[in-house]
Write a protein that binds this DNA or RNA. Sequence first.
DNA 1: CATGCGTGGAA
DNA 2: TTTCCAAGCAT
Length: 353
Amino acid sequence: MLSNQIINWYNQHKRDLPWRQTKDAYLIWISEIMLQQTKVASVIEYYLRFIDRFPTIGDLAMAEEQEVLKMWQGLGYYSRARNLHTASKTIQSQHNGVFPVNYPDILELKGIGTYTAAAISAFAFNLPYAVLDGNVFRILSRYYGVKTPIDSSVGKKIFQKLASETMGKASPEIYNQAIIEFGALQCTPKSPKCDICPLLKSCTASQSGLVALLPKKTKQIKLKNRYFYYLFLSCNDSLAIVKREGNDIWRNLYQFPLIEKSESISMEELLQSKEWIDCFGNSELVIQSIYKNKVHKLTHQNIHISFIHITISNDTGIKEKFKFISWEEWENYPVPKPIESFIKLFLKKESES
DNA sequence: CATGCGTGGAA
DNA sequence: TTTCCAAGCAT
């Protein structure tokens, strides 16, 4: 039986991961959110720091969003942190501070979809829900030779049914951990270890040479180019800061004042642009240096980023236009990766000179 | 329902 | 160096 084979493999190969040492639904929830589209190796340190600062739902619910985002800084997909925070407040107000104990109630929480609801139901409460994530899609499509695209609505139905049948009457808690671990370590996306696979003989894909072609996907991602011109305004020991708003990347994180263009422009064009005039009018500015056009590559977009360092004196009036904070205060503000990198670079140069 | 959301590591 | 994509979800 497939479920038993996978569980046997798991008992021999499972890793000792922090979130496997608890049955606290809150802690399992945090780990599952962090693990979405994110590798175990990246998650561990964030997980330990996060639960140290927010040991209970109440601790998380009482915190400021800014601090929650700060704890998430560098992990990516920041809506996960915002939704986590929102959901913690929902649990406080609608569930008496107790994490819901059944699948439908869990599924209603912000940021929790079918996968995460099934995972928490199984890992915290041993409820019979079969998880369906990237690992399960991959294993089942290969083992049973299913060529239906996993990112189609039909595919999701087929694989969900297959996942439930495969779990059968096995322990949801153990089986779900086992199949995910099997996908992460054994039946990997690239270069799966078929030569040492216990399922080799019964795996449809391996027997028919389809392993590299499965699972099948239909979606194709297209790339957009964006051009960010950050205005790095420093005044003695303070610098300008702006919070990102709207439905866009890095929502609610902090950065420098920004002029964004859809195309690359020269410094002359930038100095004459409407946005520049809006910021500074005809003020005389001292441009110290320019850090040019590093490309930040993301899944759906390439962001070309330049930093224009401008020093400002206390009496120019430009200080009134933006919020200025000290270098020490920066530690409290969640920032996107390119901003973090730039700040580190700048501070390093400062200390050297 | 197609699209956008981050980052880092492996090949 | 470039490409791929990971324990998904909201809109």
